[in-house]
Design a protein around this nucleic acid. Structure first.
Length: 264
DNA sequence: ATGGCTCATGCTATGAGA
């Protein structure tokens, strides 16, 4: 059994107290983080080592973005895809050497895409779509059991957002983004493990804006974070949880962690 | 109610997030 977690942490250095609490309480074998917002030299390696997470693959950047995967089981970094095509640190891929016959874990932070859902008026929206197109070409070449996790910045289903009609023209839930994400999914046949276990139309969110006065009462959430897997790997998953309580912890991230358990 | 807040940088304001 292997337990894998994914969390957009919105500054790993500021968030170490709640990361440590989560690791102690849930004890995943592997944790993929997005938006670490630091260079590799300043990553808090010692704090992770002290909790037994002694294997690391860190792709950092000063101030923005950045991803890292830390693990209690051996891993080997195998890739840092430049899907943004401008050098931003938004991906790190590892092979988990201690997981059954071995599996690949891809950790990705897809760009948010700015405000206006039109690539003619908003360069960032075009970059987001282009990022997904590059991911799709990569997915077509995936030929071994792979899990891809992270902040996809797209909530594809109606039950993934607090208000479907209200958000149809809001970046993260536009039909164009949902279609583009679907092409990526179909290029390999990735299974949406979150929705395999928490079935549509059950409410499932992973992000709540900092601007809401009371995120739990207003509950204007979106499912921006995902854990997807190759069909054979998805068939071996035995559990999936979303830890909404972490949104209410001291100095929280605006995203909450997801966990998938796989019987390998 | 597309921003009501929160980050990093470090210019005690600005850009970015989604």
């Amino acid at each position: 059994m292997i337990k894998i977690a994914s969390w957009n942490i919105n500054s790993v250095r500021l968030r170490m107290p709640i990361v440590e609490r989560f690791l102690k309480e849930q004890a995943p074998d592997v944790l993929s983080l997005q938006e670490i917002k630091t260079v590799e030299e300043l990553f808090p390696y010692d704090a992770f080592n002290a909790l037994g997470y002694t294997h690391h693959a860190v792709h950092g950047q000063k101030g923005y973005h950045g991803v890292a995967t830390v693990s209690r089981i051996p891993l080997k970094e195998i890739s840092r895809h430049n899907w943004q095509d401008n050098g931003e640190a938004r991906h790190v891929g590892v092979e988990l050497l201690g997981a059954g016959q071995g599996m690949v874990l891809e950790n990705v932070y897809i760009p948010a895409g700015g405000d206006i859902p039109d690539r003619e008026q908003n360069v960032k929206f075009g970059q987001k779509l282009d990022f997904l197109e590059r991911m799709t070409r990569w997915a077509d070449t995936v030929d071994r059991p792979t899990m891809i996790v992270g902040d996809f910045n797209i909530a594809p289903l109606e039950s993934d957002v607090w208000g479907h009609k209200q958000l149809l023209k809001v970046v993260s839930h536009t039909p164009l983004e949902v279609e583009t994400l679907k092409r990526f999914q179909d290029a390999h046949g990735f299974v949406d493990v979150g929705r395999q276990h928490i079935r549509d139309p059950e409410r499932y969110y992973s992000w709540w804006s900092y601007r809401s006065k009371d995120w739990r009462v207003n509950d204007r959430g979106r499912r921006l974070d995902h854990m997807w897997a190759s069909p054979e790997l998805a068939a071996a998953t035995v559990g999936h949880q979303v830890f909404e309580d972490c949104r209410g912890w001291e100095k929280p991230s605006d995203h909450v962690p997801l966990v998938t358990e796989i019987d390998l």
